[in-house]
């Protein structure tokens, strides 16, 4: 199967979903709105010719004006990669989960939620996975500051004065 064949098949398959389908290099890119994502994913997975049984990964991109959820699909029967992408509102990014369609999506979506804050509606276990998220921010967003250094004045608070060994000079004077 060539990229053009896959493009044609995908266009025929997703005709009624108002999807924008085009070729990006050798991959077939399907841009659509978030609500029709599960339907399109299900059709792409179950179609006999396209046969996208394998989800490579799910992730997201934080553009200045929008957030995008992306899904990279592979097939075991041909080598053409397909990409699903849906534009989301940057203020409250939410998209229906695809973890019911490919179970591997479960962890990829957890990771994307953790790093970018995209909320996957209907996800069975949407917890943070890589970070603790103590200050509630999402590190991969463009407005997150990664190199925030917290400076604290060093003090002896809570620590007793350094013990002096017999014959040793005053430690604070030495350093």
């Amino acid at each position: 199967m060539t990229s053009e064949d896959a493009l044609e098949a995908a266009e025929a398959l997703l005709k009624d979903l108002a999807a924008d389908i085009f070729l990006a290099g050798a991959r077939v890119e399907v841009a659509l709105d978030a609500d029709s994502l599960p339907e399109a994913a299900l059709r792409l997975r179950d179609d006999e010719r396209l046969d996208y049984k394998y989800l490579s990964f799910a992730s997201g991109i934080d553009f200045p004006d929008r957030m995008e959820a992306i899904y990279l699909l592979r097939s075991a029967s041909h080598g053409i990669v397909a990409e699903l992408r849906a534009g989301l509102d940057r203020g409250s990014p939410a998209v229906p989960t695809l973890s019911g369609i490919w179970s591997t999506a479960e962890w990829h979506e957890r990771e994307t939620f953790d790093l970018l804050g995209i909320v996957y509606e209907g996800h069975p276990d949407l917890r943070r996975i890589l970070t603790r998220g103590e200050d509630g921010d999402f590190p991969l967003r463009k407005d997150a500051r990664p190199h925030r250094v917290q400076r604290e004045e060093w003090s002896f608070k809570g620590v007793g004065a350094p013990k002096r060994l017999p014959g040793e000079g005053n430690r604070t004077e030495r350093s």
Partner: peptide
Amino acid sequence: SNYLVSDGSLRPFRLKLRDSCF
């Protein structure tokens, strides 16, 4: 696999690293 988004600047705009052990 790597998913690389460039905005034409000196730095990658977004780099997604996909790993099989995960």
